[in-house]
Amino acid sequence: MPLRSLVTRNLAIGIGIQNFPEGLAVSLPLRGAGFSTWRAFWYGQLSGMVEPLAGVFGAFAVVLAEPILPYALAFAAGAMVYVIMDDIIPEAHISGNGKLASWASILGFVVMMSLDVGLG
């Protein structure tokens, strides 16, 4: 089996596995709000039926946005690092784990950059 087919199959399986808890996250609150079991189940199913259409739209958008994609992904990564540094580390300082959080962030950044250089 070619590597690309294997990766595609594994990705599809991973997405499918992820959809089970996502469907539960939609259905269980509806059931708790008084919807019947079947009605809550079908609303959960309907929420998942949007994904293939959104996936096609997303693939089309990636093709159009391919020239700016590296910059957009870099911006998203920077935003995530900012959120961690701005929110998580100050909260860790309050609980006495500030140094651990700071060093773990630095170590994570070093590992990320090493993988980027090594694999890129």
Score class of each variant (00 low, 15 high):
Met1Cys: 02
Pro2Ile: 00
Leu6Arg: 12
Thr8Glu: 08
Arg9Thr: 15
Asn10Met: 14
Ala12Leu: 12
Gly14Ala: 05
Ile15Thr: 06
Ile17His: 02
Gln18Arg: 05
Val26Leu: 04
Ser27Asn: 02
Leu28Gln: 08
Pro29Met: 09
Pro29Phe: 09
Gly32Ala: 15
Phe35Glu: 02
Thr37Arg: 02
Trp38Val: 10
Trp38Leu: 13
Arg39Lys: 14
Arg39Met: 14
Gly44Val: 06
Gln45Ser: 09
Ser47Tyr: 06
Ser47Met: 14
Met49Ser: 14
Val50His: 07
Glu51Asn: 11
Leu53Asp: 14
Gly55Trp: 08
Gly58Ala: 15
Ala59Phe: 00
Phe60Arg: 15
Phe60Met: 15
Val62Phe: 04
Val63Gln: 08
Ile68Glu: 03
Tyr71Ser: 15
Ala72Cys: 15
Leu73Gln: 15
Ala74Tyr: 04
Ala74Gly: 13
Phe75Thr: 15
Ala76Trp: 06
Gly78Trp: 01
Val81Ser: 02
Val83Ser: 06
Asp87Trp: 02
Ile88His: 03
Pro90Tyr: 00
Pro90His: 00
His93Cys: 12
Ser95Leu: 13
Ser95Val: 13
Gly98Trp: 06
Ala101Tyr: 01
Ser102Ile: 10
Ala104Cys: 11
Gly108Arg: 01
Phe109Pro: 06
Phe109Glu: 07
Val110Ala: 15
Leu115Gly: 07
Leu115Phe: 07
Leu119Arg: 04
Leu119Ile: 06
Gly120Ile: 03
Gly120Tyr: 01
